[in-house]
């Protein structure tokens, strides 16, 4: 186990360095820059633009800029956002809360419902329920989230007036109930797609297990159908889902761009888009490193959990 960990960590560091170099290069080699948004400002001159670029250190050679950035990062300094003028970690931290709130609630909904639909679809294979679930999943997967979002806003906010038309809370009212009220629509809209994904995976995973010998054995020795399902079938079918969940971890924290935009949810997805549009190099690089670390961490955790649950898997 320890050997495995050291090896994985070592691989991760190399990967992170490669990711950072590619990301930094691509970002800076894209034409334009963080100052282009001022190009059309009334009275703006090239003289002023050049001066600001110099002050921001943007006219130094690229490798120097990279080394400077990497050296600071190693010392824990993620830089200052060009757009927000606050430390990158502060900026990320502020958006992380909104994203986690939305993601955790939608993930709980989608895992619970998705797993249930998947299992029921597998145990009642080719039933009306199974077909409806399959078709429903296809629809949920093929219709864009923003459409669901807009329809949801139209029906539940503008027409019925039951739910807010977006935002994380009513300004001036920071109560928990108020947050929950605002959370309902976006988390359901976001969950729709994930329910579809989870139910499909869960159905397949359950079908893989359901006809295996140990299940037959369990039934043969008179274990109740309910217990067979819960302990033997679901327990084993969930194994591949742990890997899936691990791979979903970065998604959880990197945000849902479309849902966040439609519901004016101040999360990570929108931060990424805003920063990219502005060429806010420090924040984009920060987000890139942040999600790269999450991907590696997610995979590592999934591996460890899978090994812990399933003794057949050995980490070496």
């Amino acid at each position: 186990m320890a050997g495995f960990l050291v090896k994985r960590l070592w691989q991760s560091v190399v990967l992170l360095i490669i990711v950072s170099m590619i990301g930094f290069g691509v970002l800076h080699l894209t034409p334009g820059g963080p100052l282009s948004q001022y190009a059309l400002t009334p009275g703006m001159t090239q003289e002023n633009m050049d001066r600001i670029a110099e002050q921001m250190g943007l006219n130094r050679p690229l490798p120097i800029q990279y080394l400077d950035w990497a050296w600071r990062l190693l010392q824990g300094d993620w830089g200052i956002s060009y757009r927000d003028q606050q430390p990158v970690l502060t900026v990320i931290g502020r958006h992380l809360f909104a994203t986690m709130l939305l993601m955790v609630s939608s993930t709980v909904i989608s895992i619970a419902i998705g797993t249930w639909i998947g299992i029921r679809g597998a145990t009642h294979r080719y039933s009306t329920f199974d077909y409806t679930a399959t078709v429903g999943a296809m629809i949920a997967l093929s219709i864009p989230t923003f459409w669901f979002g807009l329809v949801g806003i139209y029906v539940f906010s503008l027409e019925l007036g039951w739910l807010p038309a977006g935002n994380m809370y009513t300004i001036g009212n920071g109560s928990v109930l108020n947050y929950l009220h605002h959370l309902i629509l976006p988390s359901i809209v976001l969950a729709l797609v994930n329910i579809a994904i989870w139910s499909r995976y869960m159905r397949t995973a359950t079908l893989d297990v359901i006809n295996q010998d140990f299940v037959k054995t369990a039934r043969a020795k008179g274990v109740s159908e309910r217990r067979v399902l819960m302990k033997h079938v679901v327990g084993n079918a969930l194994l591949p889902m742990i890997t899936l969940a691990g791979m979903q971890l970065p998604n959880l924290l990197s945000g849902a761009l479309v849902t966040e935009t439609v519901f004016t949810w101040p999360g990570m997805g929108r931060l990424f888009l805003d920063s990219l549009g502005y060429n806010d190099y420090p924040v984009v690089m920060g987000l890139l490193m942040f999600s790269a670390i999450l991907v590696l961490l997610g995979n590592l955790i999934a591996d460890i959990v899978a090994a812990t649950i399933d003794p057949r898997i050995r980490l070496a």
Partner: peptide, 13 residues
């Protein structure tokens, strides 16, 4: 056509 940061970067200036 080009995305904003490209359009109004050196391409324009």
């Amino acid at each position: 056509n080009k995305p904003p940061a490209v359009m109004w970067g050196e391409y324009w200036s």
